Amino acid sequence: MSAPTEGAATWLAYNAAENARDYVAMAALIAEDLTVQVNGVRAVGSAEDDLRAMEHLIGVYPDYRREVDEIIGAGDRVVARWRMRGTSADSAVEPLDVPGCSVVTVRGGRMTEAFLYYQGAALDRVLQTAGERS
Rank of each mutant, 00 (worst) to 15 (best):
V104P: 11
D22L: 09
V44D: 10
T129Q: 15
G73R: 11
R125G: 02
E70D: 12
E18M: 15
V44G: 02
V104Q: 07
A27N: 10
M84C: 14
S134H: 11
A74M: 04
G73F: 15
A74Y: 04
L51Q: 10
A20E: 12
R52T: 14
E113Y: 08
G120M: 07
A43H: 07
W82M: 06
I71D: 01
A20W: 05
A53L: 08
G109H: 07
E132M: 12
R133V: 02
V106E: 03
A25K: 12
T5C: 02
L51A: 05
E32L: 05
P4K: 02
P95R: 07
S134E: 08
A121F: 08
V126W: 05
R21V: 08
N19W: 12
V38Y: 03
T35S: 15
D63Q: 04
E55S: 12
V41N: 07
A31V: 09
R81W: 10
M26T: 06
L123N: 06
E67Y: 00
A16F: 15
V106Q: 06
Y117C: 07
A27F: 07
A16E: 15
R52D: 12
R52I: 14
A27D: 15
R77V: 11
W82K: 02
Y23S: 14
G73C: 08
R110G: 00
T129G: 06
Q128I: 07
A9D: 13
I72W: 09
I58S: 00
A121H: 13
V126H: 04
A20H: 08
V38P: 00
N19F: 09
R42A: 10
V106I: 13
T112H: 01
L127A: 10
L96C: 01
G108W: 15
A43W: 04
G75V: 11
G40T: 11
V36L: 13
E48L: 04
E55Y: 03
V98L: 03
H56L: 13
V68G: 02
A47E: 06
P95M: 00
R85M: 03
L57H: 03
A130I: 07
A28D: 15
L96E: 05
S2G: 10
E67N: 08
S2T: 13
S46T: 09
G75T: 09
Q37G: 11
L29G: 05
D49C: 07
D22C: 06
D33E: 15
I72R: 05
T10W: 08
A8Q: 13
S91T: 11
R85P: 00
A53Q: 13
V68W: 04
S2K: 11
M111V: 12
G73K: 14
L34A: 11
D63H: 02
D90A: 11
E48P: 01
A47H: 03
A80L: 13
T129M: 02
G131W: 01
G59V: 08
S102G: 11
D76A: 02
